[in-house]
Structures are given as C-alpha cells and as structure tokens.
Design a protein around this nucleic acid. Sequence first.
DNA 1: ATGGTTTTTACTGCGTC
DNA 2: GACGCGGTAAAAACCAT
Length: 329
Amino acid sequence: MTSTRIQSYSEQTDVSNEERTDEERAPEREDTCPECGGDLVADSEHGETVCGACGLVVEEDSVDRGPEWRAFDAAEKDQKSRVGAPTTKMMHDKGLSTNIGWQDKDAYGNSLGSRQREKMQRLRKWNERFRTRDSKERNLKQALGEIDRMASALGLPEDVRETASVIYRRALDEDLLPGRSIEGVATASLYAAARQTGTPRSIDEVANVSRIDEMEFKRTYRYIVRELNLQIQPADPEDYVARFASDLGISDESERRARELLRNAKRKGLHSGKSPVGLAAAAIYAGPLLTNEKVTQAEVSEVAQVSEVTIRNRYHELLEADDDAYAAA
DNA sequence: ATGGTTTTTACTGCGTC
DNA sequence: GACGCGGTAAAAACCAT
C-alpha cells in the first residue's frame, strides 16, 4: 500500500517543463586554484578541471563520470538515459539536499546583520528553486521510464507513450502529484493515453504490469481524469477484438463476425452501461460459434480477463440483437 | 453513506465425448 | 468421469446521488 510519495513544495518555479533544454552539466566540484586562488570548475565535457578565474587547467580528475552518450534536447535525454532517480521514500532526495535554516542565526546562535539576513533570504529562495526544479525533473524521468516499461510490456505503440507522457507532464505542471505515487500517476496516464488513442488495455492488464495495486490505480485514474478534464469516451469494444482474436488464434472470418455482432449491438444501444471488455469477450466467443470454430468460454475468459458468466450473459444478448437485425432486414 | 446496476464467485445439473 | 455449457443465488464492485 505504501509506495513512493512526492513531497509537496510550497515554492515552485515558474519554469515550464518544456523549455528545459539547456545543458545540464553544471559545475560538479569546487576547489581553489593553486595559482590564483579562484574557484575550480570541473569541465566533464573535456575531462579537465579548470580554474574559473584564470583558466588554468588542473589535470586532476580526468575520468569522465558522465554518461557516454550525448543528448541534444530534453526528450532525447529522457530516452537515452538508462538511469532513473533512485528509489525514494517520502522525499525525492531522501532529505539529502541542502536545507538552509530559517532562523537568521549563525552557527553560534548569534543573530545576523541585516545584510547577511538579506543574503540568506536570497540563498534560501534560489536553493529552493533549484531543488524543486530538480525534483520535478527526476520525478519526470522516473515516471517516463515507468511509462516506457509498462507500455512495452503491454505492447503499446510509440504514440501512446507520447500521449501518456504529455498527460503526465500536465499532471506534474498542475501539481496533482503531491500525495500520490509517481507510479500511480504514470500508470493512470498510460491507461488514459491508451484509451484516448484507441488502443485500450483493460484495467486488469494495465494493473498487472504496474507496480501499484489496482485500487490505487483506479483511484488515481479517476482523479487525474477529473482534474485534467480529460475527454475520454467509453472504450469501444471493437478495439479489443483484434488483440483477443490473435491471442486465441481465431480465423479472420470469425473475427469479422464478432465485429458485426458488436456493431449491431452498438446500434441498438445494447452496450450502454456494460463493460466494453465483457462485450468484446462475448463477441470473440460468439463469432467463432457462428462459423463453427471451436473456442471455449474458459479460453476467452482467460485472455480477456472476464468471467465466463459475463461472457454468457453478453453473448446471449449479442445473438438476440443479431436475430432482430436479420428479422428487420 | 446508500441504492441500483453490473460483474464475479461458487455451485449445480445436463449432455456429450 | 471429464469437459463444455447454462443457469442461479449471493457477494463484491462500481457508480451516481
């Protein structure tokens, strides 16, 4: 039940996620230059350590600890990066980041002068800005990795992942994450994206590849749909047909019949209120029945993750609707 | 919280191979 | 006797109110 939570931060940067394409190899280490006493800056690009003031190259740390790949924009970086944020509990940085105390006291407990106070105020502000920026970035990276993993486990195409990441970014931008797990929102985003792009996966399927449990997943899904005003129409049963059919190795003819049944049912409004997956499962069972192909309810139930009872109920309705259609014609 | 609807679970009887 | 199938009742899950 307990999974990763995102800490809420009061002060947020107004930098939007999209425009973070700048080079993020900030100076990694600081020391003082033996010549001029200026600050040393690690230039990992060239594997050198140089003095920021006089430019003296100090051949000290020539091992490039950075990644071996290059990225030219944020998206590419997300894609190439093989590392994510470390698994975190409660706080993205495990509380390791710098915190500047709010009391305007020095290390000995003496009050600071007004100049110093002002300075600390500024430092606090910027420290906080960088930290939240960082946290969002890591957050996003981890989420995208998660989305990618689940998407490939579900065999979802690229455009779904992109849609999912867009949804996730929106959730992040609108501060919907505090109090929710990254995995949860990532899972929900993916599920929503899959439905929006007409390649739906059932809740069970998605839940199976997600690290969070089903309850939380559904809760989170409802939440982000509501908060982001996502327009998601009920899944079309027909969208499931192709996948179920191929999973069961059903003939094209049977699959075609299944689709017909569904279209008929839809025209009659038979599908409203019923679960699309159940309908699809029923059709995938009834289709082969009409072409004398053998498929058992148990098999369909297995691949569609729908109970046999539901399949029975639905497919009766489907056939009835079909008869009526023939009678009317 | 509640009530109505849908789905699932569990069990039973029937026919067939 | 195992299997596929149909039906039923009760429980659980879902959804709008």
